[in-house]
Structure formats: structure tokens, C-alpha cells
Design a protein around this nucleic acid. Structure first.
Lengths: 148, 148
DNA sequence: CCAAATAGACAAGTAGCTTGACCATATGGG
DNA sequence: CCCATATGGTCAAGCTACTTGTCTATTTGG
């Protein structure tokens, strides 16, 4: 594979992920959550299972804990998360999604699924499955947030 | 393909593209161009062939022309581009890469090629080619810059 | 038991955009 | 050939999502 092909692949990768993020953001907005940005969505994916501390969120989002705290503040003001005491650590506060937060998460998931479904219509389920498997082999699980 | 698989694909796509951008940025820095950010690299890819006007650059990067002008200013101060008169339009100024700008572009290309080569070692050339073809089918050519 | 690490908060600063207003030049229909 | 409208670029001001730096409270480990 030539270098030019490698370059093409990297450009395509960026283009596809940008389009995807925009599609998800648009879907979330259309669902009525107009005060959410992509960064919030990345936070939600971390909060969804069992909640998280601000520091855990910061690590996951690839930002300082101050920035994460600010983001959590905003989500709290808008009713997407609660902040309670942490069961195992008196220093920490456990941030968890509210029902509204979970609804927004579902809206984002739906938008992502719709985007992926549209892709599948274009390339078919077999190539879609291969694509997913190949990406899984590449994507080192690091920071989730691409700093949009 | 289930929704959860679609979600996995989208997460993987974002993860892979983030890792790639960071790898390119790191490579450019290691090559000595410490005053460049990813957004500059995206600008270079548009400038490389024949130069461009500030407005064209703005459209390509998905930002206002004022922001693009500011970016060009910075590149000019640091010796990466020249700004000359436009041959066909007295309003416009043609922004072109200097030798230093072309060298930085090569450094970015090299880093991208190295990252892709590392991936190819993991999944092999065949899957790599398929991956590229599948991504080409998905990526609508829109804005290049993911607003990092 | 104490030293070092960690969670979080408070304060201040900043980079990289934005919106708004404006002038100079280009374009195209009448 | 005009003139209305669009476009390229600039100047100015403002804002948002971060950053760095410092501090306290609590936990952890040797």
C-alpha cells in the first residue's frame, strides 16, 4: 500500500468521524436537547453505566478536572445530572445521569444508529461488519473526546 | 447489524480518528515544527496544490473568514506562507506555502503514513485496502477540519 | 503515623474562535 | 453601460471552553 493510499485513508477517517459527530449533534438537537454539545455526549457515555467522579470524567474526556467540573456544573444546572456523595470516598462526589440525562443519551444513541444504518445501506451489512472489526483492531482505547 | 454494533462502530471511528490526529500532530512537533497545530495541517492540505484565498480556506476549514485570516496571519508571521496578489481578482490575495510550509506538510504526511503503516502491520494490507475502500464509500466530502 | 497522592474548589488568564460593521472589487441582468 | 447585489478582505469587540496555579479535605501506603 502506497503512502498516498495511507494519506487517503487518514483523510477519509477524519472526514467520516467529523460527519458522524455532526450527525449525532444534529439528532440530539432535533430531539429537543438544544443545550447540549458533543462534549456533553462524550461525558454521558462515561456516566451512563454507574456514574463517575469528576476526576474520572476528566481523564476520560482528556481535559483538566477543572474543565470537567465546569462541564458537570453546566449539566447540573440544566438538569442532566445529579451530584451526590461518593459511597467509598468522602472527598469525591458521584455524578449520575437523571432521567433527562438518560433520555438525551438515548437520543444521541438513536442518531448514531441512524447514521450507521444509512452507511449500511450504502455498503451492505457484510462490509459494515468488517469495517467495525478493522476499526476495533486499530482504535487504541484512549481519550474518547476528540476535543471538538 | 444490531444498534449496539452501530454504536460500537461510531465510537471506534471517533477513537481511531482522534488517535490519528494526535499521532500526526506529535510527528510534526518532533520534526521541529513546534508552532503548528492540527488546524494548520488541515489548512496546508488545502494550500499545497496551488495556494488558496482566505475565503476558500475558511470554507474548507469550516470556520469564518475572519478566523481563517487570523490563522493565515499566524502562518505568515512564522514563515509558512506568503500572501501575494491574486492573478484573477484584485480583491483577493493568494496564500501560498513557502519552502518551510512544504517541509512541514511533508512532515505531517510522513507521520500520517507511519501511523497508517503501523496499522497495516496489525491488520495486514488486504484488510487495510478494504478499510480504505469502505471509508471512501462513507465519507461525504464536507468540511475537512473537525474543529479541534 | 506520617508522607505522598488524589478529589475537588476557587481564581485568573487565554487561545481560538464568533458576530457585526465596513470598504473595495467583481458580476450579471436590464 | 449601469447599477444592484454578491464576494474578498479587514477592523473591532466579545465570548466560550478551555488552561495554569493554588489551596483544602481526605485517602492511601510504607
Amino acid at each position: 500500500m502506497a503512502d498516498t493510499d495511507h494519506l487517503a485513508l487518514t483523510a477519509l477517517l477524519l472526514s467520516a468521524s467529523t460527519a458522524l459527530t455532526e450527525a449525532i449533534d444534529a439528532g440530539v438537537h432535533e430531539a429537543g436537547f438544544t443545550d447540549l454539545r458533543p462534549a456533553h455526549g462524550f461525558a454521558f457515555t462515561r456516566l451512563a453505566p454507574h456514574g463517575a467522579t469528576t476526576a474520572q470524567l476528566a481523564a476520560h474526556l482528556g481535559m483538566t478536572k477543572q474543565a470537567a467540573a465546569q462541564l458537570v456544573d453546566e449539566l447540573h444546572r440544566n438538569g442532566y445530572v445529579t451530584r451526590g456523595p461518593h459511597p467509598d470516598d468522602a472527598r469525591a462526589r458521584l455524578v449520575e445521569l437523571t432521567a433527562k440525562g438518560r433520555a438525551a443519551t438515548r437520543a444521541a444513541d438513536d442518531a448514531a444508529a441512524r447514521a450507521a444504518a444509512a452507511w449500511q445501506e450504502r455498503i451492505g451489512p457484510d462490509r459494515m461488519a468488517r469495517l467495525r472489526a478493522d476499526l476495533a483492531a486499530l482504535a487504541a482505547p484512549g481519550h474518547l473526546r476528540p476535543a471538538w
